[in-house]
Amino acid sequence: MGKTRSLATGLAAAALAVASAVTATPANAAACNGYVGLTFDDGPSGNTQALLTALRQNGLRATMFNQGNNAAANPGLVRAQAQAGMWIGNHSYTHPHLTQQSQAQVDSEISRTQQAIANGGGGTPRLFRPPYGETNATVQSVAAKYGLRQIIWDVDSQDWNGASTDAIVAAHARLTNGQVILMHDWPANTRAAIPRIAQTLASRNLCAGMISPQTGRAVAPG
C-alpha cells in the first residue's frame, strides 16, 4: 500500500514537472520584446561542434554562413548544425573577393556552395553573405538567381580582428530589435562569450531569432 501511494505521488510529481516545463515555453516566448540575428561565418570547422554545444546549452539559435569548401569537406558538421536547430546560409565556396570576379566565377562560387550544403543535409540556403561584406550588382544578381537574400550586418563583433571576450559581449549590448551581428565560427573568444551573450540579450528581453529571407531582418523563429 505504501509503495503504491509512493508510486502515485511520484507520478503526480513527474506530471507536474512536465506540465511546468511545457507552460514555461510560452512564458519565455512572451519575454521576447525583440529579436536579433546571431551569425557565424566561415564554418564548418574543427571548432563547430563546441560552438554548437555552447549555443544549445545557452538556448541560442543562430545562422551559420558556411563556406562551400568547408561544407563539402565536413558534411557531418553541416548535418550537426541543422540538427542543433541552426539556420544555414551561403558564404561562397572559397571566400574570394567576389567584386573582383566575373559573373561566371561568382555563379560558380554561389552555386557550388548551395550544392555542398544541400549534400551535407543542410537544406537549400535562402540567405547569402558575401565574403568581407563586399557586393555589387553582379553579386546581387547571381544571388537572386539562386533565390538568395543578401545579408550583411548591423554590428561587427570584431572577433575576426582579435576582439576580447569582453568586447564581443559588449558588441551584443548594442544590438536592437531586428538587427544582425557578425561573428565567426573559429575564434575561441567568441565561443567563450556565448554564455554572457545569452545573459546580455535576456537582460534586455531580446531573443535570438531567424533572419527573414523577405526582409533581411531578425524575426521570431518560424
Rank of each mutant, 00 (worst) to 15 (best):
P130S: 09
I151R: 02
L127I: 02
G120V: 14
A104Q: 15
T113N: 02
Q100W: 08
S108R: 15
V106N: 04
R126V: 15
S102K: 11
H91Q: 10
R149H: 13
H91A: 09
I151G: 07
P125V: 11
S141P: 02
D154T: 10
S111R: 15
Q81N: 14
Q83C: 04
E134L: 03
T94N: 00
S92L: 04
Q140F: 04
V155N: 10
P96A: 04
R112S: 13
S108D: 14
N119G: 12
G133W: 01
G122E: 03
G120P: 12
Q103P: 07
Q140D: 15
L77R: 12
T135H: 05
A143D: 09
P125A: 11
A143L: 07
S102E: 11
Y93Q: 10
D156H: 03
H97D: 09
G76W: 13
L148I: 14
S141V: 03
S108I: 15
Y132L: 09
E109G: 01
Q105I: 07
P125Y: 06
I117P: 13
G123S: 08
H97A: 08
D107W: 04
K145C: 01
R149Y: 02
P130G: 07
A84Y: 08
S111N: 12
R126F: 01
G89H: 04
G122K: 04
V106C: 08
V78R: 07
D107R: 14
G147Q: 12
A118Q: 13
T135W: 02
L98G: 09
A143M: 02
Q100D: 08
A118I: 03
E134P: 02
I88L: 07
S157D: 04
S111E: 13
I88T: 14
L148D: 14
E109C: 01
I151N: 06
L148M: 07
G85C: 03
A143E: 09
G85L: 05
H95C: 00
Y93M: 14
N90T: 08
A116C: 11
H97K: 11
N119K: 13
L148K: 05
Q105L: 05
Q150G: 04
A143C: 07
Q83N: 09
Q114V: 08
I88K: 02
Q115A: 15
R79P: 00
G76D: 14
S111W: 08
P75D: 08
P130A: 11
L148R: 06
I110E: 10
S157N: 07
G122Y: 05
I110Q: 07
A82V: 01
Q81C: 07
I110M: 10
H91E: 09
V139A: 06
Q83F: 04
H95A: 00
E134K: 00
S102W: 04
G120C: 15
V155G: 03
Q114P: 05
I151Q: 02
Q140S: 15
A104W: 10
R126Y: 00
T113L: 01
S92E: 05
